[in-house]
Simulated scan of single mutants.
Amino acid sequence: MKGSIVKKGKKYYIVVDVGEKGNRRQKWFSGYTSSKDAEKDLPHIVAKLQEGTFIEPTKTTMAEYLKEWLDLKETDLAKNTFDSYYRQIHNHIIPSIGKIPLSKLKVMHIQKMYGELEKKNLSKTSIHKAHSVLKASLKYAYKTDLIPVNFADKLDNPKKEEKEMGYWTKEEGKYF
């Protein structure tokens, strides 16, 4: 498998031949502003293609992906669990990171989402639940080769609020 650098306009592209002999196919990778940046990435891209570990970037947004994932999970989840996932996704996750393409999601986006949820005075337990739902959805995306890594795994799960145990006084116990 061979690759080369091509300049079109002000951008540089990596072009890799991925077809067999007699059946020429090329894969183009864009987004480079200098030939040095493209040259740095060329061996990594060729290696991933040869190993079969390259994951094609998708333009699917997080909102689109989460809605599809939730549809798939509906039959597997109890009604209350599904409703909870639905609320977390539509009320907290999508408003924060829904416009980001799934293939471009990074740890910083998730961390920023937690900060936004804290600013909205969401309880730590609610943020914990949002993290759990996002982590589960990204685990599925990773297993199905939609993303190369589950970035939610790289973050610590936000702590739940610890509620002080309530108890009755002797008088309350006797009255009960």
Results as ranks from 00 to 15, higher is better:
E74F: 05
T60V: 15
F54K: 09
G22Q: 05
T58F: 02
K59Q: 12
E68G: 06
T53Q: 07
T33M: 09
H44P: 01
K21C: 04
F29V: 02
Y65C: 11
P57W: 06
T75N: 13
S30M: 00
E74K: 15
E39R: 12
A78T: 11
G19C: 07
E56M: 09
I55A: 08
E39N: 14
K27H: 01
T53V: 03
K67R: 15
T60P: 00
A38D: 01
E74Y: 10
T33K: 13
L66H: 00
A63N: 15
D37G: 11
T75F: 13
G22E: 09
K27S: 02
E39F: 05
T61R: 06
T75H: 14
K36I: 13
E64T: 01
I45Y: 04
K36L: 12
L49K: 06
T53D: 04
L70Q: 14
N80T: 15
E68L: 13
S34K: 11
K27P: 02
K36C: 06
F29D: 02
E20K: 15
D37R: 07
Q50Y: 03
H44E: 10
R24W: 02
T33Y: 09
A78Y: 09
G22A: 02
D41H: 08
L70V: 07
S34L: 05
R25T: 01
T60C: 09
T75Y: 13
R25L: 04
W28V: 08
E74Q: 15
N80E: 14
E39Y: 01
P57T: 08
T81W: 08
D71F: 12
G19L: 06
K48H: 07
K40Q: 12
E56T: 10
I45D: 05
V46S: 00
W69D: 05
K79E: 15
L49V: 04
T53R: 04
G31A: 04
N80K: 14
